[in-house]
Design a protein around this nucleic acid. Structure first.
Lengths: 352, 352
DNA sequence: AACGGTCATTGGAGCGTTCAAATCAGTCTT
DNA sequence: AAGACTGATTTGAACGCTCCAATGACCGTT
């Protein structure tokens, strides 16, 4: 059976091509009676609009590009994986699709943008892992390509829409929870200074430690590379202090699980003897009973797509070609959408 | 600057549209001198073929669909993540792109196939997580849609191309390694019988235990749901046996890490006192020093795409429309490509 | 009864590409 | 020297869709 086209549906419903097209894309333009007749024909012939033909005409592909990472560390990899999963599900519900690509660095990523834009007419991109002076956002903004980032534009004056999870709020909540449980000596086990995400998470702990007048001793603030091994040795050093902390807030589950391992090795019970709270709520944390700060990845993905939707609406009002110079005046530049900063959720388990 | 088209390139090189098209798709048809001239024009105008237009004409989109999982367990999720990453990279190098979609079950997945095929003209699919009587493969095969699976067609007589990793070979290698190290009482900690992948991994251990005449006592073969907690309790039960095993081969890293945790809790050193070997080579395994069987995911992805390439070549010789009935005779049905069964690699670390 | 106005619908054109057939040299046959 | 053949290139059509301008039909107003 040959594929159904607008033409064949039109013949079947005794109307014109354009009316069928309108029934699909602008139902308010077509008479109710005609509408039902057309819709019947559509289902009967099992018609599906042909994506490529539509793209060719409208310059909209309903495709959103997302980079998949070459493999960072265990924790972040899993986070991206879950984010992508949510993104795919949300986009799908909205008639859009996620197209994957890889790149070794930001420069190569920009080159891929070029390919994907002129070759596949991608509508937009979702970036992640933003950092200060990110050339990717500059590249896209300059060319007026719609995009949003999962991750705020650290430092630089971001003129684009972004969605992020408030890391400081997460560690603050963790620390607050520990304070409420009676802890006064709460340490922070994070990454070396200089990583934006790490510094942010550290600041939440530091804020509350100051505000609550906690007993912060030298050695209560460690910064090591992410990993179970490094986390374990750093935790060991804390426990060996003359006055050891009674709780440790960590910048990642890897570090927290390292601390957890060290505790159990010493015969200490996480939670009962020394509290530990991780970050990212990995499945491992769930299994061993490690409290952790969970990022609302599904909400983040939804927010990204909602924002993208708005950007696409305001940017190209009604199929206007990208002829630069003369943008339709009534739409205006409209400025970037309001950023979204989501609060993470503290998942309390046995460890704290 | 308006986008370059075949037309504009043609004018610039003083040839016709079609010659430029040929220079790209069938260089042997065009005169060497003309070729260089056209190529110069292409680079000068920064021309990129327009994907949608080509798809509209040729019915080939260069797009391959892959399903991203709604989140299984930690281990399998990571495996899929790494596989997708490799798949994306390999496809990209070959001029193809990976398009993501999600589905709650096999039936819904088939519905998506329909959408993706007639709407987006997807060229092919890569499936994973195959099982006996998989309706997805039946659906695709019946409609003659090109696809390969990562995972063999368990039980059913698969008439499609597939790539898989030999799980039995992995556990066999692990067991062999332990035998070589002098172990005689080697237990297996796996999943309940009935899961195809789990049974396969168990069989490798069972094979070698028989062949090497190992001392397999009651309780040396456990089957529990995947997870750290379940693994730990199952391992505890083994260690409590009157004659405990000196080594444990596991069906997953989750189980192995559970066993590992139980060992350290008892003051036993993994490797020195009781050997433990996991499966899937997770990052956690790497960090804690757990030996594990690594799946060659990058090779698997490459094999999938190579196979897909072959299927696409033989199936639609030269842009032939899918008019069923009259397939070009010289190509013939050609049958499914030879399956690829990859051997996993045992990564030996401190634990065994 | 002629006029402007809204609503529903229509036909033609064009998006950028490839296919199929046609053209036009030049070379080899007989 | 006329025909058949090869190789390089061109032209028109088509893929399925949406944009745009135009067409009637029907309404109320002057």
């Amino acid at each position: 059976m040959a594929r159904a086209t607008l033409e064949s549906v039109a013949r079947h419903a005794a109307v014109s091509r354009q009316t069928v097209s309108n029934a699909l894309n602008a139902p308010h333009l077509v008479h109710p009676d005609t509408l039902t007749r057309v819709r019947a024909a559509i289902t009967e012939l099992n018609y599906r609009p042909h994506h490529a033909a539509r793209t060719l005409r409208t310059r909209r592909s309903q495709l959103v590009g997302a980079r998949i990472e070459p493999w960072r560390d265990g924790v972040n990899g899993a986070v991206l994986d879950r984010f992508l999963q949510s993104l795919t599900a949300r986009a799908q519900a909205d008639g859009q699709r996620i197209l994957l690509f890889t790149a070794d660095d930001d420069e190569q990523e920009c080159a891929h943008y070029e390919d994907l834009l002129s070759g596949l007419d991608l509508d937009a991109f979702v970036l992640h892992g933003t950092h200060a002076d990110d050339r990717r956002t500059a590249w896209l903004a300059q060319r007026r390509v719609p995009f949003v980032t999962f991750g705020r534009p650290w430092g630089s004056t971001g003129t684009h829409g972004w969605v992020d999870v408030d890391g400081a709020e997460g560690t603050r909540a963790a620390t607050r929870h520990l304070v409420a449980a009676g802890h006064r000596r709460i340490a922070f086990l994070g990454w070396p200074e200089g990583s934006e995400v790490g510094d942010d998470r550290r600041s939440g702990w530091a804020d509350l430690a100051l505000a609550a007048g906690l007993e912060v001793r030298p050695g209560y603030d460690a910064g090591v590379a992410d990993g179970l091994g490094t986390g374990r040795t750093a935790a060991a050093a804390m426990l060996d202090l003359e006055v050891a902390p009674t709780a440790i807030v960590c910048a990642s589950d890897s570090l927290a699980l390292g601390a957890w391992t060290e505790l159990t090795a010493r015969g200490l019970r996480p939670g009962a003897d020394v509290a530990v709270i991780g970050f990212d709520d990995s499945t491992t944390a769930a299994v061993v009973g490690l409290s952790s700060v969970a990022q609302p990845l599904d909400d983040a993905a939804a927010a990204c797509l909602r924002m993208l939707h708005d950007v696409l609406e305001t940017d190209r009002p009604r199929g206007v070609r990208g002829d630069d110079a003369d943008r339709s005046p009534e739409a205006g530049p409209a400025g970037p959408p309001d950023p979204v900063l989501l609060s993470p959720r503290l998942v309390v388990r046995a460890s704290g």
